[in-house]
Design a protein around this nucleic acid. Structure first.
Lengths: 261, 261
DNA sequence: CGTCAATTTTGACTAATCGTCATTTTAGTA
DNA sequence: TACTAAAATGACGATTAGTCAAAATTGACG
C-alpha cells in the first residue's frame, strides 16, 4: 500500500482533515480522501441495488472511476469495506446524538431524545444500520483491518460517552440516584436495550413478524420501562412522555421528512 | 435435489422423525437425517478451527465422508448452512428454556431463570450464538432457502411463546398488572434486552471493552431494571434476586460445569 | 524546464471458491 | 435377478477475491 494512503485513510475515517498534518502533498491527500468517500457512497448504493450478498469488488470497480488495485489500497478486503461503511454509519449516529442531547427538557427527556435519535437513524439508514450489525459479525470482523477495528471501537466509545454524560446529568439534576448502579452499568443497559430493540425490529420487519407490536411506540415503551426501573424521576406515571415523543418528532422534523413513506 | 431430501430435510430440521411419514424408505431417510446432523457438527468444529471467514464448502468436504454434491443436497449455499447451524442453536435454546421455566419460584424468578438460561447458552455455545447473529444478517438471509427461513421464524415464535407464558403467569399470579402494556410488548422488551445484552457482551469480550462492566451480573442487573420498570412484584428492593441468581447457578449446575474456565 | 526519485495507479493474472450437472452408484421392489 | 427411482459423485465452468510487475503520476530540485 502507498505510503500516504496508510496514514490518510485512518485520518480521514476519523473525520480529520489531512491538510492539517502535512502541507507537502495536501492536494493529493485531499483527492484520495474524497475518493474514499466516493467509493463508500457507491458501495452503499450498490448494496441497495444488489443486496449485501450481491456486493462484489468487481461490481464496485465498474461503477467507480478508479481501478481494482486502487480500491484495494483503500480497503484491505470486501469485509473491510463493510466495516468502513459501518464507521460512516457510526459517524452519522454521533452527529444525531449531538443534536439529540440539545433537546430542551429534563435529563430523562434528553435520554429519550437519544433513543429517539437512534431509532430515527435505524429507519433513515437501514442499510448502514445493517452494516454495523454485519460488522459485528465474526466473518466480517475477522477480515477487517486492525486500524479500522480500533476506529470502530473508538467511535462506539464516543457513543457510550454520550450516554454516560446523560446519566451523570441526571444524577446532578437529582432525578437519578447513583447508589445502586454505576453509570457504566446504566449506559450498558440503555445501549443493550436500544441496540436489541432496533435490531429485532429491523429483522422482524423483514420477516413480517411484528404485527403483534405497535412498532412506532415500541422504543418509547421500552425506554420507559427501563428508566422507570432505574427510578429515574419523573416516572412514566407522573409525566407525559408520549408528549415528549411527539415533541421529539418536531425537534427532529428535518430528518423525519426524509423518512420513506 | 433428490425427491426425498426435499421433504426429509425440512422434517428433520423440525425435529420430526421422518420414519413416521413413510415406511417405504425409512432407513434411507434416517441415514440422510443422521448425515445432516453429522455435517452440522463438522461445520461447527470447522468454524471453531478456522473461523467464520475461513469456512468453505471445500474444507467441509474434506472432513466429511460424502461429496460436495451431497452437501449441496442438504444446504443450498454456504449461508444456508450457517442458517441450519442457527436452527440447531435455537433448538438448544428451546431445550434450555424448557428447563428454565421449571425453576421453582415466583413468576418473576422464573423469568429471571429464562434470562439466565439465555446467557448460559450464549457462553456455552458462543459459536452457535454467533451463528444466529450471522443468520440475522442480510448477506446470510438473502442466500438462505425459504424453507429454512420459515423454520427459523417458527423457532423464534416458540421462544417468544415461552416469554408470553411467563408474563401471563405473572398476571395470573397477581404480581404483574396487565393494564398498561400487552404481553407482546413485555415479551418484546425482555427479548430485546436479552438479545442486546448478550450480543454486546459477546462483542465487547472480543474487543476487550468491558473492563468497565461486571459481566457476570450485567444480565441480572439489566433484568432487574426492566422487571422493576414493569412493576413486577416483588421489586428488586424487596427481594434478594442476587440469591435467586445463585440458586440458578445450582439449578443449572450440570451446564455450568461445561463452561470454559 | 527537464530530470529524477518517490508514490500511486493500473488491470491482467493467479488462486480460491462457489455451485452445477452428466454420469455412476445405491436401495428398494417385483 | 432385473429393473427403476432416488441419491451420490467429483470433474468442470463460472465467478470472485486479492496480487503485483509495470506504467503513470506527482512534486522537488537543480
Amino acid at each position: 500500500m502507498g505510503y500516504w494512503l496508510k496514514h490518510i485513510k485512518k485520518l480521514h475515517a476519523n473525520g480529520l482533515c489531512p491538510i492539517d498534518i502535512c502541507m507537502g502533498s495536501a492536494r493529493k491527500q485531499q483527492k484520495i480522501a474524497e475518493r474514499e468517500e466516493g467509493l463508500l457512497t457507491q458501495a452503499h448504493e450498490l448494496v441497495d441495488q444488489v443486496g449485501f450478498a450481491g456486493l462484489t469488488i468487481d461490481k464496485l470497480v465498474k461503477t467507480a472511476t478508479c481501478s481494482k488495485g486502487t480500491i484495494y489500497n483503500h480497503f484491505s478486503s470486501k469485509e473491510d469495506l463493510i466495516s468502513a461503511l459501518s464507521i460512516r454509519s457510526l459517524n452519522i449516529v454521533i452527529d444525531l446524538f449531538d443534536k439529540a442531547i440539545q433537546f430542551p427538557g429534563n435529563a430523562r427527556e434528553r435520554a429519550l431524545s437519544v433513543i429517539f435519535a437512534y431509532q430515527l437513524y435505524s429507519q433513515l439508514e437501514p442499510t448502514l444500520f445493517m452494516c454495523v450489525m454485519s460488522a459485528k459479525t465474526p466473518a466480517v470482523m475477522e477480515k477487517t483491518s486492525p486500524e479500522r477495528l480500533s476506529i470502530m471501537q473508538e467511535k462506539e466509545l464516543q457513543l457510550t460517552a454520550v450516554c454516560d454524560q446523560l446519566f451523570e446529568s441526571g444524577i446532578n439534576e437529582g432525578s437519578l440516584k447513583s447508589e445502586i448502579r454505576t453509570v457504566a452499568d446504566l449506559t450498558f443497559a440503555m445501549w443493550a436495550l436500544s441496540f436489541g430493540s432496533n435490531a429485532l425490529l429491523m429483522n422482524a420487519k423483514a420477516a413480517q413478524g411484528i404485527d403483534r407490536l405497535d412498532q412506532k411506540n415500541a422504543l418509547l415503551s421500552n425506554a420507559n420501562l427501563m428508566f422507570d426501573g432505574m427510578q429515574w424521576q419523573p416516572l412514566a406515571q407522573d409525566f407525559d412522555y408520549q408528549k415528549t415523543w411527539q415533541r421529539l418528532e418536531v425537534f427532529f422534523a428535518e430528518y423525519i421528512e426524509l423518512l420513506p413513506v
